[in-house]
Amino acid sequence: MRRTDRLRACGVLLALAGAASATTPNGLPGVPQPAPASAPSAQPAWASMTPQQKRDLRARYAAWQALPDAEKLRVRRAGAALVAMPVAERQALQARFAGMDQMHREGWLLGPRLGAAYARLQPLLGYLPAAQREPMLNLLEQLDADSLEQLSLISQRTPPQDRAALREALLAVAPAQRAAWLREKVGH
């Protein structure tokens, strides 16, 4: 796994931390490790959480469940690499992630590929109506790297008052026509 791929997958891993079972080291999803026989039950920990902590944990778990299998595999590999890192390097990576804006940290919940593009897509996706969330995420998963980059440019160039219309128009474009539609919008 290339270093940039590992860093992207680690971003997802850190965003999802705590979403996996209590038997994973450092709460890293998809990196199972047998729990010692004397390990305490997860129930007391759950019972001591605030409602906000429980909501956050549920959201991270749902994000993990929603990742495509290929993205989960990348995150699992990154988890193994993260666990194998020297403690200082792992802590530096965790500190770098913690230093990011919360909005961008949460963007990593979309997986390594979309998480890496989220900062540029945020103007378009940041205030996505609930009814458009699933169709838009499905659409984003279908885009190739060039189309995703073009959508990132369009997202950044579109004034706030025009973003809802842009999302509706994008969702209305047939999948076979999206690449051409995006190129036309970018001006290529």
Rank of each mutant, 00 (worst) to 15 (best):
M1C: 03
M1H: 11
M1N: 11
R3H: 07
T4Q: 06
T4M: 09
D5Q: 13
L7C: 07
A9N: 08
A9P: 05
V12S: 04
L14N: 04
L14V: 04
L14M: 05
A15I: 06
L16W: 00
G18K: 01
A19C: 08
S21A: 13
A22P: 04
A22K: 06
T24Q: 02
T24M: 02
G27Q: 13
P29L: 00
P29Y: 02
V31A: 06
Q33M: 10
P34M: 01
S38G: 07
S38I: 07
A42S: 12
Q43I: 10
P44K: 01
P44E: 01
A47T: 04
R55P: 01
R55W: 08
D56F: 06
D56N: 15
D56M: 13
L57F: 00
W64D: 06
P68R: 14
A70E: 13
A70L: 08
A70V: 13
A70Y: 11
R76C: 13
R77K: 15
A78W: 03
A80I: 13
A80C: 08
L82R: 02
L82N: 02
L82V: 06
A84H: 10
M85L: 12
M85D: 13
P86R: 08
A88Q: 13
A88G: 07
E89L: 02
R90W: 04
R90T: 01
A92E: 10
L93Q: 11
L93E: 12
L93S: 09
A95C: 05
A95V: 07
F97V: 14
M100D: 00
D101L: 10
Q102F: 07
M103K: 14
H104F: 01
R105H: 13
E106K: 02
L109K: 02
L109F: 05
L110N: 07
L110K: 01
G111T: 00
P112K: 05
P112A: 07
R113L: 04
L114Q: 09
G115Y: 00
R120I: 00
Q122S: 04
P123F: 01
L124Q: 04
L125G: 07
L125Y: 01
G126N: 03
G126F: 15
P129Q: 13
A130V: 14
A131C: 09
E134I: 11
E134L: 03
N138A: 15
L140R: 01
Q142E: 08
L143C: 09
E149V: 06
E149W: 04
S155G: 13
D162A: 09
R163F: 04
A164C: 09
E168S: 09
Q177G: 05
R178L: 03
